[in-house]
Design a protein around this nucleic acid. Structure first.
Lengths: 118, 118
DNA sequence: GCATCATTTAACCGAACGGTTGACATTCAT
DNA sequence: ATGAATGTCAACCGTTCGGTTAAATGATGC
């Protein structure tokens, strides 16, 4: 059987909606952390933190290595790359828009798309 | 004057979790659309689509220009840039990880982590 | 004026979210 | 063997989510 099917974008973005989970990822970017360490900065029960980690895991953003009685979590950046890829589809858009925005706001129809380089 | 207070990252990612809304953004990338046009590809009521658009609006991803009885929606890419910026913090990570991934996959659960430097 | 088109609003529904508490399983240290 | 440490699981709770239907609003066209 296929162990890892591609973590859907839905799941990844959903995991990123929560500030607590985003902070956990930031922490994991600095090194492996067990559940207690991930939970420490937040005013919430360990059970709640455990759930958050599970969400990150489901999104493929975290891999868990059970080591004795502690579960050490490791950042798994691939799904972030996938999310980024999705976003970059719009990259040329937000670049182009930096000055085109003014034009659009002034003349709401027939938007001329030419503009000066920023 | 404060034109727009920063649309929180929470709100932006949350808006992106839904595939319907992501598809709407893709459609908007090709040009302005009114609500009916945005709703058309999906098997859902207009009221539901209207809610989706409202979510996109709340995230600052869409601007609505009421023109007569139709509401024409326009893509507003700035919050996407913000989300991308957040993600790119991890960019060096997913680049560096391309080959380290194999090592991680091999040293799965029961495996000792002593084999590699940490 | 009147019907129609485009859209929102309100009320409702079941499922998912984010949190809690309390009980349980395992591992580690003594 | 006992007990503390590390986490999970199950049950529960209030809120949000994504959808529905039905009614209301507002602009258009005849």
């Amino acid at each position: 059987m296929v162990e890892y099917l591609p973590p859907a974008l839905d799941t990844v973005f959903q995991a990123l909606t929560d500030a607590t989970r985003r902070a956990m990822l930031r922490s994991l970017a600095e090194g492996d952390r067990n559940i207690g360490e991930l939970a420490a900065p937040f005013a919430m029960s360990l059970a709640a933190a455990s759930k958050h980690v599970k969400v990150l895991e489901r999104a493929g953003l975290v891999r868990r290595l059970v080591k004795g009685r502690t579960h050490v979590c490791r950042l798994e950046p691939a799904p972030l790359a996938a999310a980024d890829e999705w976003l970059r589809f719009y990259e040329h858009f937000w670049n182009r828009k930096l000055d085109a925005l003014d034009a659009l706001l002034k003349a709401d129809d027939g938007a001329p798309t030419e503009g000066k380089p920023r």
